[in-house]
Write a protein that binds this DNA or RNA. Structure first.
Length: 463
DNA sequence: TTTTGAGTTGTTCGA
DNA sequence: GTCGAACAACTCAAA
């Protein structure tokens, strides 16, 4: 009996429930990835994430070959491609890890209507629909969600990677997609082995300082595991188990707090996957109906300055250039630039949401949408609308010496720490001294934060 | 059923 | 320089 392991965002052999099910039900398994033109043409996928995916497929193919198997690549409409492959191979079942995005669920319903498709858990530690209030409704606030989540018996044994996978020899495959290639500036090595090494390193040290260091943009205080969780090169269960191992091994209270805080971040991920599952409409509009009528200004020139990292606010510009160069941005910086786009430039959060999806290697519809709606104040469990980040203060607090700014803004590299967050305050003599002319080497601020703050408050008052 | 306390990430102002 | 209050309104879950 042949079964198909349909790979979508679970590019791993270890702790993979779909692969395990396929192996349990067939003596031969066909690992399949379908290049779906609908996703690539959606306008939400940029070259960096696509390149990371393609490099990840090559890594997975290599791991499969070491086990006597290989990756089968097809391209086109998934329903049609699966039907063809089932007909050609006489496969009796298709196993895949369930996804929560509206597109994925519609696609999988269409497949299931024609073919024996079996969906497994694994995208999240606990299935997206599993955490409900006593009255059976979904949570819309994080803290009670997290309490309920933690009260569940969520831990289970990690499924080992299979040692051998038998795959029929006569299945046709397209070559592995190689273009676009992963730029050297993207600091993520694709694949399951790289993810495991990163997780070990984080669990054995950085996690104990996570509670304090995670907000510092100038330090490497975060796990940087998001691209791996995005493509399932690391299972959520494995990550959560590592958090608990660190919690148990923590030498003191501060270390325990670090591990606890990181586990909470994983639960935030679970929360936003659950929100998208229960409220798919958040992808197109504000979760809160009264927030759907906000009168954004939507100035395209200001948006272009934001994407280019030319706003005149150093921490905003450093973050936007980090994103363009590496496909990743520090989480604190994501909040700062999102607050700046919505509350200083008065631009619709959905413009920023789309741009992030185009740029981010870890771009995930649920987490990205949740983060943007939180900052914009339009979402579930939203930040209060009057909570407007001051980009200068945020820079001074979370990049105290300006090292993050200097890394990404070479034109400000020679400014001292007490000037680097407010280059617009330099005198002409200082501009000469630090070799940075305002308006030429670095832009003057494109808006005045202290003028825009009341305008944003007024925009949000109209409800 | 009703009441009550608490709730990721901040800033500004005035004492 | 530090500190507390104000900036709303609503959900959730325990009492």
């Amino acid at each position: 009996m042949k079964t198909i392991w349909w790979i979508r965002r679970d590019l791993r052999l270890r702790d993979n429930q779909a692969l395990t099910a396929a192996l349990n039900h067939g003596d031969q398994v066909i690992p399949l990835f379908i290049l779906d033109p609908t996703l690539q043409q959606s306008g939400y996928v940029g070259p960096q994430r696509l390149a990371f995916l393609y490099a990840g497929l090559a890594d997975l193919d290599e791991a499969l070959r070491q086990r006597g198997s290989r990756l089968i690549i097809r391209a086109g409409d998934p329903v049609e491609q699966l039907a063809r492959l089932v007909a050609a191979t006489d496969a009796t079942a298709v196993y895949a890890e369930a996804d929560v995005s509206p597109y994925a669920r519609r696609r999988d319903r269409q497949v299931a209507a024609q073919l024996p498709l079996y969906l497994t858990d694994g995208l999240t530690v606990l299935p997206a629909g599993a955490i409900l209030k006593e009255n059976g409704e979904p949570y819309t606030v994080y803290t009670p969600f997290s309490r309920k989540w933690k009260s569940q018996p969520w831990s289970r044994a990690i499924l080992p990677a299979p040692e051998q996978i038998a795959t029929p020899d006569d299945v046709e495959s397209l070559p592995l997609p190689a273009e676009p290639a992963l730029p050297a500036t993207v600091p993520f090595v694709p694949g399951e082995a790289a993810a495991a090494a990163l997780l070990r390193r984080f669990r054995d040290g950085l996690i104990y300082r996570y509670s304090d260091d995670r907000n510092r943009m100038d330090l490497d205080g975060t796990s940087t595991l998001s691209p791996y969780l995005r493509f399932g090169m690391l299972s959520a269960q494995t990550a959560a188990a590592a958090a608990v191992e660190a919690l148990q091994a923590a030498p003191h209270a501060a270390a325990r707090k670090g591990a606890e805080t990181w586990l909470n971040e994983l639960i935030w991920r679970e929360f936003y996957q659950a929100i998208l599952y229960h409220f798919p409409e958040v992808l197109g509009a504000a979760f809160r109906p009264e927030m759907r009528q906000l009168q954004w200004v939507n100035d395209e020139a200001l948006f272009d300055a934001w994407t280019a990292g030319q706003t005149g606010y150093p921490v905003v510009d450093a973050a936007m250039r980090q994103l363009a160069a590496t496909g990743w941005m520090h989480n604190r910086a994501r909040m700062i630039v999102a607050s700046f786009l919505t509350k200083d430039l008065l631009i619709d959060w959905r413009w920023g949401e789309r741009y992030f999806m185009q740029q981010l290697v870890d771009g995930d519809p649920a987490a990205n949408n949740g983060g943007w709606q939180w900052t914009a104040g339009t979402g579930t469990d939203a930040a209060p609308y009057f909570r407007i980040f001051n980009p200068t203060l945020q820079g001074q607090k979370f990049d105290p010496q300006g090292d993050y700014i200097r890394r990404w803004l070479p034109e400000l590299a020679s400014l001292p720490a007490n000037m680097i967050h407010e280059p617009a305050k330099m005198s002409v003599a200082q501009q000469r001294q630090y070799d940075c002319r305002l308006g030429e080497d670095y832009p003057a601020p494109i808006v005045d934060h202290h003028e825009m703050r009341p305008k944003a408050l007024a925009l949000y008052k109209v409800r």
